[in-house]
Computed example of a mutant assay.
Amino acid sequence: MPKPDNPNYLTAIDAAALKISHLNAKSQAGSKRNKTMNMNQLIDMIVRTVVRRAVNSGVNAGFDAMSNLGRKTSDKPQVTEQTTRESDPEREKLRAMRQARRAARSAQNITNS
């Protein structure tokens, strides 16, 4: 590490100022170039912009669909499990039949063991 009494020693501020002046010189040198855009560059720029917007909107729509943010729950009445089971006697009848079959099967397995 160079010592501060060395004339070639740069502080961090000096180094940053040198870098900024170097970048400014570079950008001014580049400004002498021809700044006109040919038709191919212009079409490419427009196509990239359109494709980027289309992809972003598709990705956003996909995330909204996957997180159910796009679903409108305020339009539909809230239906809970309790109201569904209470309002559908056919469902209760099927559930009771399944439960009876399960009980019969387990009783048969116990007697066969």
Rank of each mutant, 00 (worst) to 15 (best):
Q82K: 13
D64Q: 06
V47M: 08
P89I: 07
K3D: 10
G58Q: 02
A104M: 09
R33I: 00
R85G: 10
I20R: 15
S106N: 05
R95I: 09
T111Y: 06
V55Q: 11
P4T: 10
D88L: 10
A104W: 09
S113C: 01
N112I: 04
I20H: 15
D64H: 15
H22C: 08
A25D: 12
R95S: 05
T80A: 06
R101P: 00
Q99M: 02
R33E: 04
A12L: 11
R91H: 09
M39T: 01
T73Q: 06
S57R: 13
G62P: 04
D14F: 12
Y9K: 03
V51R: 11
I110Q: 08
G58K: 03
Q28I: 02
L23T: 12
T80V: 04
A65E: 05
R33V: 00
S74R: 02
G30E: 09
L42Q: 14
A103H: 03
D44L: 08
S74D: 07
T36A: 06
I20C: 10
V55G: 04
S113D: 03
L94S: 08
Q82P: 00
R71G: 04
R85Y: 15
D75E: 03
P77S: 00
S74W: 06
R95A: 12
P77Q: 00
R105E: 06
Q28C: 04
K26V: 07
T73F: 14
I13A: 12
A96D: 11
A65S: 05
S27K: 13
K72Q: 04
D64T: 07
R91W: 15
T83P: 02
P7W: 15
N34F: 05
T49N: 09
A15L: 14
G58T: 01
K35C: 13
E86T: 15
R102P: 00
P77Y: 00
A29G: 02
A54F: 05
T83K: 13
P7E: 13
V47H: 05
M1K: 01
T84A: 13
A15T: 13
R98A: 06
Y9N: 03
V47L: 10
L42E: 10
M97R: 08
M45T: 08
N112Y: 09
V50I: 04
A107R: 08
N68G: 05
Q41D: 03
M66T: 01
